[in-house]
Design a protein around this nucleic acid. Sequence first.
DNA 1: ATGCTAAATTAGTAATTAGTTACTATCTTT
DNA 2: AAAGATAGTAACTAATTACTAATTTAGCAT
Lengths: 203, 203
Amino acid sequence: MILPKSRLSTGERQIEIIHAVLTLAAENSPDAITTQAIAQHMGLTQGAVFRHFPTREAIWLAVVDWVEQNLGNVIAAAVAEARDPVDGLRRLFEAHIAFIAAHPSAPRLIFNELQKPADHPVKQRVCDLLDRYRRRVTELLAHAKAEALVEPELDEAAAATLFVGTVQGLVVQTLLAGDPQTLQSAARRLWPLYLRAIGVRQP
Amino acid sequence: MILPKSRLSTGERQIEIIHAVLTLAAENSPDAITTQAIAQHMGLTQGAVFRHFPTREAIWLAVVDWVEQNLGNVIAAAVAEARDPVDGLRRLFEAHIAFIAAHPSAPRLIFNELQKPADHPVKQRVCDLLDRYRRRVTELLAHAKAEALVEPELDEAAAATLFVGTVQGLVVQTLLAGDPQTLQSAARRLWPLYLRAIGVRQP
DNA sequence: ATGCTAAATTAGTAATTAGTTACTATCTTT
DNA sequence: AAAGATAGTAACTAATTACTAATTTAGCAT
C-alpha cells in the first residue's frame, strides 16, 4: 500500500494544483474556482496554495501552459505519423478530440480566458496558443492543396476556421449532453462532413 | 433636445439593465460583471438595480430571455422568406451572424451559462434555447434532403452540429481578432464550405 | 398647488474573496 | 545528530460581493 506523503515538493504540488483546476472546471465555471476550492480538493489549507504559486493568476498561466504542452505533444505525435496532409488533418482532429475527451474542461478554460480583456496576460498566452494551432492547420491544408488532394480553389483560412469550429461545435454538443461520452462518436460522424467541406477526393 | 428623464419606470430600467449586461460583457468575462458595474454603466447607484430585479440571477435570466426573444424573431423572419430549405439555412445563418455582429457578447453569455452546474436554473434555460435552435436546423436539413437538394445520405444531426460549430468557430475567430468587424466577411467565406459539407448541388 | 406612488439614494449587512503573517512540522544535508 | 530549508497550518486582513432597509425625491393625477 502506498502511504501518502504528507509533504510534497513545490513541483509536485504545482502539478496537483493544475490537475485540481482541470478537475474542478468540469463541474463549475472556471472563474468560479476559488483558491479555497483548489486547496480543499487537494486536502490542504487555502494558505498552502500560495506556497506554490505567488498569485491566483499564476495558477491559470500554469494551466494554460500545461494545456499547450500536452495538447501540443499529442498533436505533434499524431501528425508525425501521417502518410499525407489529409491523413495528417484526420489524425490531428482525432488527437484533439481524444485530448478533449480526457480533459473536457481544457477547451472551456481556453475559451473562458479568451473572453477576458485584451490586456489580460493569460488571454495573451491563449491567443498565442490558438494562433499556433491555427497555423498548423492552415499549413496542412496548404500542403493538401499543393498535392491536389483537396478542392483546388480551397480557401485555407476559412477551412482552418471551420476546423476549429468543428471541434468547438462538438464541445458545445457535449456541454448540452452533459456527459463527455458522446464526444468520440459525434466526432466520427462529423469528420466525413468536414472532408466534404474541403473537397477531398473520396477513396 | 431630448431632456433625459432622471427617473424611469421599472420596465424601462429592466431593458436598460439587460443592455448594460450585453455591453459590459463585450469587454469582460460575463461572471465578472457585478451589479455595481451595471449600476455605474447606467449612472445609477448599486442599490437601484435591486429595485428592478430581485436578484442578480434574475438579471441573467432576463438577458437569456432577451436573447431568445430577439434572436428567435430575427431567425423566424429570415426563414419565413426562404424559397427552399437550403435558402432557409443560408438566411438563418446570415441572420444569426448579423445578430452576433450587433450583439457580440450574446453567444459568449450563452456559452458561459452552459458551463454552470447542471442544476443551475439559467443553464436549464440556455439548454432549452439551444435545443430549439438545433431542432430548427435539423428540420431544415431534413426538408432539404426530402427535396433532394443535398447529399441523399446526409447525417442531419451531424450537419446540425457542424452548423452550430461553424457559428461558434466564427465567434472564436472574432475573439482572437479582437474586433467584430471581421465577422461578416469571415462568415461569407465560410458559407460555401458548409454548403459543400452537406453536399448541396451548386447553382 | 397638493398628495400619492414609486424610483433612487444612502448607508448599511454578512459572506466570500485573494493574499499575508507568524509559527510549526517535516524533510534533507552535512 | 545537528542545522538549515521548506511545506503546511491557523488565523488573520482588506477589499469586494450580492443584497437590504430607511429615507429622500421626482413625477404624476387630481
